[in-house]
């Protein structure tokens, strides 16, 4: 054969390559590739786990955010309710105070009226008594001029003493 090509040697080279391919596959290629795939799977699972945890955390955050928003609304409602309640109680107190004030004024007016009537009655009675006394004096005493003088003198004595 030209170039010393030998079929037997070609077949021996094929056999050699077949042995090498099989040996390298089982001893090196497959174990290394399997390890690399395992590691890839491990990191993929870690990645998925992290993504799932992140999603879960995001969900929890959203829930808390919703709760927080709800709490804000609740606080706003409670505040409005408290304000309303405070306004109502203040109004009630104001009404009560006004009622009391009216009552006090009414009492005071009644008392004042009563006092005025009493003073009026008293003064009328006093007037009547004075009128009676004056009438009596006029009727039973002699000369009013003398009486006047006597009174006047009595007054001087009183001033001197």
């Amino acid at each position: 054969m030209p170039l010393n090509i030998d079929l037997q040697q070609i077949l021996l080279h094929w056999m050699n390559l077949a042995i090498l391919t099989g040996g390298l596959y089982f001893l090196l290629y497959q174990p290394v590739k399997k390890f690399m795939e395992e590691r890839e799977e491990h990191y993929r699972s870690l990645d998925e786990e992290a993504a799932a945890k992140l999603a879960q955390a995001e969900q929890v955050r959203a829930e808390y955010q919703a709760k927080l928003d709800g709490a804000d609304e609740e606080i706003r409602q409670a505040r409005a309710k408290a304000q309303q309640s405070a306004q109502q109680s203040a109004q009630a107190l104001l009404d009560q105070a006004q009622a009391q004030a009216k009552q006090i004024v009414a009492h005071a007016r009644a008392d004042a009226e009563h006092s005025r009537e009493q003073v009026l009655k008293e003064s009328q009675r006093e007037l009547r008594r004075l009128a009676t006394a004056a009438t009596k004096k006029l009727a039973f005493q002699a000369d009013p001029f003398d009486q006047f003088l006597d009174l006047a003198e009595g007054g001087d004595k009183h001033e001197d003493s």
Partner: peptide, 12 residues
């Protein structure tokens, strides 16, 4: 560098 080895690898 042996032609038989090169032919073996090329044909394989």
């Amino acid at each position: 560098s042996d032609v038989n080895a090169a032919i073996a690898l090329g044909t394989l």
